[in-house]
């Protein structure tokens, strides 16, 4: 009774096709956990931003999704890990308009606005891990 097994999935991110797959995977998680349409859309959009950054700027990486409980509310944790050059100045990268590529520079800050909790761990030269939590 009430003994839900914690569940974990992973996905390799190498190209724009994988960014699509990442969106679909998160959509499935959100549907399974009966998230509202708007919450599902937020999660899919945030993942799309971060997964693309990973492919474009870090040459690829891996996405992990696992279930979580936040004060009793069910949800999931998305982690996107790469071995790329890292983000030299995390604070700077969170500012609106910051961009190292051709984007609108909304990726990181935008994604942060779209999730319940957002964390960046990055060391120059040692890759980046971005964690995004969602719960109902």
């Amino acid at each position: 009774m009430g003994n839900e097994e914690s569940f974990r999935e992973s996905l390799r991110l190498r190209s724009d096709k994988d960014v699509s797959k990442a969106r679909v995977l998160i959509s499935q998680w959100a549907v399974r956990q009966e998230f509202s349409v708007i919450e599902r859309t937020r999660a899919m959009t945030a993942v799309s931003e971060i997964a693309r950054n990973c492919v474009v700027y870090a040459g690829g990486g891996t996405m992990y999704v696992s279930s979580l409980y936040h004060e009793g509310a069910p949800g999931f944790r998305i982690q996107i890990v790469d071995q790329g050059p890292g983000i030299p100045d995390v604070d700077q990268s969170m500012k609106r308009g910051y961009s190292t590529g051709g984007g609108l520079g909304l990726g990181m800050e935008g994604a942060r606005n779209l999730c319940r909790a957002f964390r960046v761990e990055s060391n120059a030269g040692a890759g980046t891990t971005i964690t995004m939590d969602y719960w109902k």
Binding site: V37, E109, G110
Partner: peptide, 14 residues
């Protein structure tokens, strides 16, 4: 444009 997409775009800052 779907309502959820419009909301998300605004939250994204677009």
């Amino acid at each position: 444009m779907r309502p959820a997409v419009a909301m998300t775009l605004v939250e994204l800052g677009l």
